[in-house]
Design a binder for these strands. Structure first.
Lengths: 340, 340
DNA sequence: CTGAAAGCGCTAACAA
DNA sequence: TTGTTAGCGCTTTCAG
C-alpha cells in the first residue's frame, strides 16, 4: 500500500508537506506540483481510517429507515443519497424494521464507527442515546423539545384532504389513521382534517389504529380484516343511524389502497360511491400514475432540508426545526373530477 | 472518550489483556471478568477506526445500484441489507445513475475507506479497477471470465415467458428488450425466448432498444414515442404483410407497463387482444397485486447468494458463479387465464 | 497467560 | 513555508 511516507520520499519533501497539500494548506507552488506528481505516479490514496482516527470524523452519515418495502422510504433514501453526495457524504444504511433495539444498536454502531451524523425515521426516543459527538436529524417525528426534525406540512395536508373530498362532492367524511405513539408530526394529518371539517361544519368521523393493531405504521397490508370491520360500520347496511360515509382520508397511501380493496369487496364503486384520498403521493414505479388520489409529500425538499440541517448541526450552527414543507393534492383515480 | 487504556487502568490489567478479551483470545477467567466489569462500568466502545487501521478491515460492504426509483433495486437492497446484517456487515450505499465515472469513483472511495467488499449492479468493467484487497460480486452482469456473478435464470425466464404466452393463446409473439452492451446475463432473457419459439415453431419477432435509445435500461418511462412507433409496426393497420402480434414479452416490468399504456392508446385491449409479460415480478407497493404479468426474479435468493459469495471471497475460498436461480411466472392482469 | 512496546497512516502542533 | 515529532486507539508480536 502506498502511504503518505512513500509520497514524501518520492517527492523529496516531508510528510507534513504532503499532508498539507492533501488538506489544502499553504504549500509553495513548486512543492505542491512535485507532491501532486508523486501522488499520481505512485497512485496514492488517503487512508480515511487513519485520517478519521486523528480527526474523529468520517464522511459517513447513518440513515435509519423502518424498511425499504414502502416506496416512500426508498424514495426518501434516493433523495437523501442525491443530496448527501453533493457534500461528499456517504450513507451507511440501517433498516430498523421499526424495532427499538435495532435502532439503538445502530446508534451504538454509529458511535463506534465515529459517524458524523444520523438522519432517520425512528420510533424510539433515540436522542436520549445521542451524545454531542453526533448530530441527529429526525424526519416526520417530534418526540420532544430539543430534537431536530424535518417534515411536510402534515396539518395542512389533512386540511387539504378534507377540503378536496368536500369540493368533489363527498359530504360525510371519515379519517383513517395508523399511528405511532411517538410521531406527533404524523398525528397532525388527522388534526388538520378534523380542523377543516369543524371549521366548515362538515360531518366527519375518525378512526385510529394503534401500532399494535396494524402490523406496521407504514405497511397496512395484512390488516384487511381489521379494516373491513371498521368500514362495515361506516359504509355497510349496519350504518342506519348515521349518514353513510362517502369520502375517506387515509393517513398513508398504503392504508388508502388497502381501504380501496375492501370497499370494492363491499360492492361499492370508487370514486362514484366513495372517494378516497391517501397520503404520501406514491406513483406506479415511482414515476407513473398515482396509486391513489393522495396528498403528496415533497420528498426532495424533505431530503434537502434534512441534509441541510444535519450539516449545520455538524458545523455547530443554530438550526430551526422545519415542519411545514408544502404538500399538494395529487389527483388519481380514487377521486372524482373537480366540480364545476 | 473511553479508550482501551482507561479500561485497562480501571481493571488493573494491561491494554493487551483488554484487547484479548475484546477479541476472544485466551484470558484467565478472573481477569476476563474484571475487564468486562470495567467495560460495563465505563461504557467503553471499541473505536472501529483504530481497529480498522491495524487490521485493514472494516465491516462495511459497498453496494452499488443504478438507482432506487426502480422498485427492483430497492427490493434487492432490502434483501441485501437483511442478509448482510446477519453477518454484521453494514451497507455503504452508492447510487451510480448507471454512469461509469460514478461507479469508478465509488470503487476508489471503497478502496480509500478500506471497505471489505463490493456488491453491485454495474455498467462498467469495474473489475479492472478492483484489486486483491477488495472482493467484488456482480449481480445480473457477466462481463468476462473471472468476474463473480449472481443472477436469476434469465434464459429459463425467457423460455417461460414464451411458453406462457403461447399456452394462454397467443400465436404471434414479440420480444421487446432494452439492453446494456455489458450485461450478457440479461441478454439471455431474449435468447431463451427465441430458443423456445424456435423449438416449438412459433412465429416471433424481436426488438431491441440500445442503451442510447432508452434513457436507462431500467427506467423505460420517457421513451413512449419510441415504443409507440415500434408497436405500430407490429400491431397497427400497417402490419398487413405479417401476422398481427398478440403476445409480447418485455425484458422488464418497467418496459412492460410502458408498452401496455401504448397498446391501450391504440384502442387494443389487454389481455383480450394482446397479452403482455414483463420481467422482475414487481408488485403494487411491493406486496400487493402484480403490476403486470411477469417472470418473477427470486430477489431474496439473489441477495443471499451474492452475500454468500462475497463472504467466501473475503475468506479466500473458491467460489462458483451462480447464474441460474429459479424464476417463476407471476400471474397478473395482462395475461388471460390458462387455457383448459 | 500477561505486559511492554512497536507501529498501522495520518494530522497538527511546534520549532526552525 | 517546511520538517520533525507526538500521538489518535487499537492489535499484535515478543519476552517474561
Amino acid at each position: 500500500m502506498v502511504t503518505i511516507k512513500d509520497v514524501a520520499r518520492d517527492a523529496g519533501v516531508s510528510v507534513g508537506t504532503v499532508s498539507n497539500v492533501l488538506n489544502g494548506s499553504r504549500v509553495s507552488e513548486e512543492r505542491r506540483l512535485r507532491v501532486e506528481a508523486s501522488i499520481q505516479k505512485l497512485g496514492y490514496q488517503v487512508n480515511t481510517l487513519a485520517r478519521g482516527l486523528k480527526t474523529h470524523k468520517t464522511d459517513y452519515v447513518v440513515v435509519i429507515l423502518p424498511n425499504l418495502t414502502n416506496p416512500f422510504f426508498s424514495l426518501l433514501l434516493a433523495y437523501l443519497e442525491k443530496t448527501l453526495t453533493l457534500y461528499h457524504k456517504q450513507i451507511v444504511l440501517c433498516i430498523s424494521d421499526a424495532e427499538k433495539n435495532k435502532e439503538l444498536h445502530f446508534i451504538e454502531l454509529a458511535r463506534r464507527n465515529k459517524i458524523d451524523g444520523v438522519i432517520g425515521i425512528t420510533y424510539t426516543n433515540i436522542d436520549d442515546y445521542i451524545d454531542d459527538s453526533m448530530a441527529f436529524v429526525s424526519i416526520d417525528r417530534h418526540f420532544h423539545e430539543g430534537i431536530h426534525v424535518v417534515s411536510a406540512d402534515n396539518f395542512e395536508g389533512g386540511k387539504l384532504a378534507a377540503a378536496t373530498l368536500y369540493e368533489r362532492g363527498s359530504r360525510n367524511l371519515l379519517s383513517f389513521q395508523t399511528l405511532s405513539s411517538l410521531s406527533t408530526e404524523v398525528r397532525k394529518r388527522q388534526q388538520g382534517f378534523e380542523a377543516w371539517c369543524s371549521e366548515h361544519q362538515v360531518s366527519y368521523s375518525c378512526n385510529t389504529f394503534s401500532e399494535d393493531q396494524v402490523k406496521s405504521v407504514y405497511s397496512s397490508y395484512g390488516s384487511q380484516d381489521l379494516i373491513a370491520n371498521v368500514l362495515r360500520a361506516y359504509l355497510g347496511s349496519a350504518a342506519e343511524n348515521r349518514p353513510k360515509v362517502d369520502g375517506i382520508f387515509a393517513s398513508s397511501d398504503h392504508l388508502a389502497l388497502a381501504i380501496c380493496e375492501e370497499i370494492q369487496k363491499f360492492g361499492l364503486r370508487i370514486p362514484e360511491d366513495v372517494q378516497v384520498i391517501g397520503f404520501d403521493g406514491l406513483r406506479i414505479l415511482n414515476q407513473g400514475e398515482p396509486l391513489v388520489s393522495s396528498i403528496e409529500q415533497p420528498v426532495p425538499a424533505i431530503a434537502e432540508a434534512a441534509v441541510d440541517m444535519l450539516l449545520k448541526l455538524l458545523n455547530h450552527e443554530n438550526v430551526e426545526n422545519v415542519t411545514n414543507l408544502p404538500v399538494r393534492f395529487l389527483e388519481g383515480w380514487s377521486t372524482r373530477p373537480r366540480q364545476a
